[in-house]
Design a protein around this nucleic acid. Structure first.
Lengths: 238, 238
DNA sequence: AAATTGTTTCTTGCATGCAAGAGGCGGGCG
DNA sequence: CGCCCGCCTCTTGCATGCAAGAAACAATTT
């Protein structure tokens, strides 16, 4: 690339209210992670340093740093001297992740039953009640939003930052493989009832009950893993 | 979609020598991770690029890549344009990690009760029986080795690679704060009895019981978190 | 003396250059 | 006709150079 170092151009498009400027490498890592988790970059796809450098109008150095960071998080795989590819998740590992996710959510539910503040309990109950309307009217999209918020309240309510990080990260990794719409179709009512069991157990301070209810709830959802092979092969062919 | 640090999936510093040659950056990252987890580099300590470059006889480039990877795993903290320091773990987060660790081990125990093969069950029982000798003779070091092996068998027996990774990573992060000897002194017999409860539940296929027993076992151990403040302030002053 | 501001120095972030490994290709060989 | 081996090219890994930000310092002012 023959473009000289033009640092005075770097703020273009960055927006005016840039609170605290990050490094290029961090921005790139965030952008690429986003694309991967959204499914825009299929597993197995090669990430060429020069190509990315051109695309983002930077030199290879920050690109390399970004790829290295992504490799450290497991989102991409680094084969020494042979380049970087988007990580390919084996079907067995995906299955493991769904199972582990259920256990993590169960643990969070248990902690919620013990540790949630009265306000948080009220908030959870209120949200759950509100979602009932979406069930009655069959609003899948709306219910899915309630569903996400429901789980987010649990992540917050467990009052455990580390567990919350594990949950967020695992959820993000599983996001490309969740077909929420698909899973919810025809299951709105039963999903709501499963949530109901979780909520009631939490409200009565029954940690074991909350954990069990959540595990059962997710056991049905995680059947989605079966889809994986089809999705994976489809993505690889693209 | 926002991707936070995914500190827990790091395989840095784990595992034996890689047969295939790695890059300098990866070696450096592994070495530094090891030093940090062993406590050789205290939290808050500044990591100077040039200094590290000299020490390892490389240029700043691979050092920077290594530090970036460590930052992605959460082991160090990167302040843009202000350098890198060894991550300082807040007391609250440490407490959270102990609690989460207990939940993860409980989950593993549950899965063991369900999924362990007959061979694995026999192996676990055999190890547990063998460790009884160390208890009788008061061999703390010996018992600690049995203890580590015991937990390793559970990590393997749950047949869930993702959960195993979470457990390994969390255990590694907590390693500097575990004072195993301290915790075991005078507790050998009770620790063994707690293990006994876990083993028996697993052998009879009682997942809930195994999880509960493991949670109770670790609840006593995690009191170690209280030590943290003293350790931390001591390390910071060095 | 404390605070503030201008200056100097040090460190980081990024671009570029170069050498070595990996993969592709064509020619010689079985 | 297929296989193996050397060459060539492309990519990666690392070193180096340079500019900008941050910290350290000094001098001036209040």
């Amino acid at each position: 690339m023959h473009v000289a170092n033009l640092p005075f151009l770097s703020r273009l498009g960055a927006g005016p209210a840039n609170p605290q400027r990050q490094t290029r490498a961090a921005e790139l890592a965030a952008t690429l992670a986003d694309e991967i988790l959204r499914g825009g970059l299929a597993p197995g796809r090669r990430l060429d340093e020069q190509e990315l450098a051109q695309r983002f109008a930077v030199s290879r150095t920050p690109v390399r740093e970004a790829l290295g960071q992504l490799a450290a998080t497991g989102l991409v795989e680094h084969r020494p001297r042979r380049g970087v590819i988007v990580a390919v998740i084996a079907p067995q590992r995906l299955q493991d992740m769904f199972v582990a996710m259920a256990e993590l959510e169960a643990a969070a539910s248990r902690l919620c039953a013990i540790a949630m503040t009265p306000d948080e309990r009220q908030g959870l109950e209120a949200l759950h009640r509100a979602s009932q309307a979406a069930v009655r009217e069959g609003g899948i999209d709306e219910y899915e939003r309630f569903n996400q918020e429901f789980h987010s309240l649990l992540y917050a309510g467990c009052h455990n930052g580390y567990l919350r990080d594990l949950l967020h990260a695992t959820r993000a990794r599983l996001a490309p493989f969740r077909r929420a719409q698909f899973n919810l179709r025809g299951r709105l009512a039963s999903s709501w009832r499963e949530h109901e069991a979780v909520v009631q157990a939490i409200l009565r301070g029954d940690g074991d009950g909350a954990a069990r209810a959540m595990r059962e709830h997710l056991a049905t959802v995680s059947g989605a893993a079966a889809e994986y092979v089809a999705i994976q092969s489809h993505q690889l062919s693209a």
